[in-house]
Design a protein around this nucleic acid. Structure first.
Ligand SMILES: [Mn+2]
Ligand SMILES: [Mn+2]
Ligand SMILES: [Mn+2]
Ligand SMILES: [Mn+2]
Lengths: 219, 219
DNA sequence: TGCTACACTTTGACTAATCAAAAATAATAC
DNA sequence: GTATTATTTTTGATTAGTCAAAGTGTAGCA
């Protein structure tokens, strides 16, 4: 029923509402995240409210209704299952799958998606370590801990990569920064805004604080 | 570059031009085949001509240019490879794949398609026996011979099913009328407009003339 | 040769999605 | 507590794709 455009809006709003834990998602974030002008976002919010997918309070922001949340969650599931398929089955690189999935997610039916899920063995994460929601919209929460929130000398398991840009993903792959790998924090140079890392069987390397926060880990 | 709508138009026009071997494809056929009103088809033809995908002569019809033909052929390839994937890999029934492929064909990139082609082992037909064009747009011609064009008593190989409707495909499957199976023409009752068939290891059954022409065969 | 169907084209209207630019409001600084 | 800045909303316009209904052209028949 919802158009591809509406699916994108609802998915983005859901992701924003899960990230920045505030009551409403502000207009500006929505416009930025969808790459449209603020006016476009405002007018779309009115349509989405009319369809009961969210409630919109002028100059405050937007909150998804259960039906809006459901559609958003379905889109996340489609996106991540498709990304998994593209890497696991077709052998594409994890840096090139996001844009492909961004389009395919609007074209795949529930029936085909469920077959794909079975074919893939009901995976629980996509190639970037992001959890895949169940058919019923249940999603595992990501750990909060980033590379920055750990002590020098501890060995951690990489859980998830938050940055989706091809450039960063290529870099991360080259350094061994991939979900499942073990990594040790060798040094933390507060003054230099830098940490030094060692991924198992790989040479050491450095990462800025800002970038380090994009790698989620568990011990 | 072309929108999904344009892709559908060019694919349909190409298929029509291959079926009814006439110089130009008439407007009426285009409108019918796309399920739009004649006026819509006319105005779209002007746009497509502007983009140099075809030449349009008012009240005569339309002929694809090489670049239009190329896009149409790419769409046929995408559609048929996707149908093959849906049946071979995901196990959907051959009666339910057409509509799925009709949507997915606009969402899959060349890169993913080529991976899919390799994954499937470069198939030469889709599940209905239709030839899959090569990457360069070369397509095998279908045999002209239908079930009607054969003599009583001869055994033939089923090559292709031209009717795409789920109802007919379900019926055909139940009777064993599928590409690759051998069939014998048992009787031809001209006055009753009917032929009687026997597919190997299956009970005999009858088919009207009109329907019989939708099954292509070779000896 | 004129008439009648049918095929096709034109016209005017509509919807979804978008932008640019102007207007309004809220937040922050001083 | 005003002035400046940032955010959001309005307004007016555009584009792609569509339909309904009215208008036009033509092929074949009378
Ligand atoms: Mn998308
Ligand atoms: Mn992802
Ligand atoms: Mn299509
Ligand atoms: Mn087919």
């Amino acid at each position: 029923m919802p158009s591809a455009t509406v699916e994108n809006y609802l998915k983005s709003i859901l992701k924003l509402s899960m990230e920045c834990e505030r009551g409403e998602v502000p207009m500006g974030m929505i416009a930025t995240s969808l790459g449209v002008t603020p006016g476009t976002a405002t007018s779309m919010m009115k349509n989405l409210q009319k369809e009961k997918w969210l409630s919109y309070k002028s100059r405050k922001g937007v909150r998804l209704t259960p039906s809006g949340k459901k559609i958003g969650m379905i889109m996340i599931r489609r996106h991540r299952l498709l990304e998994t398929f593209l890497v696991e089955t077709l052998g594409l690189d994890w840096s090139e799958i996001h844009d492909e999935a961004e389009v395919l997610e609007h074209a795949i039916s529930e029936k085909v998606l469920e077959r794909l899920d079975i074919f893939l063995g009901k995976p629980r994460h996509d190639p970037h370590g992001h959890p895949i929601p169940t058919k019923n919209g249940i999603i595992r929460r990501l750990p909060k801990k980033t590379l920055l929130d750990s002590l020098v000398g501890t060995k951690m398991k990489i859980e998830s990569i938050l940055d989706q840009s091809p450039e960063f993903l290529n870099f991360a792959q080259a350094k061994g920064l991939m979900p499942g790998r073990m990594v040790t924090l060798v040094k933390n140079e507060k003054v230099a805004d830098t940490i030094e890392l060692q991924v198992e069987k790989m040479p050491k390397f450095s990462l800025g604080y800002k970038t380090a926060q994009k790698i989620l880990v568990s011990d």
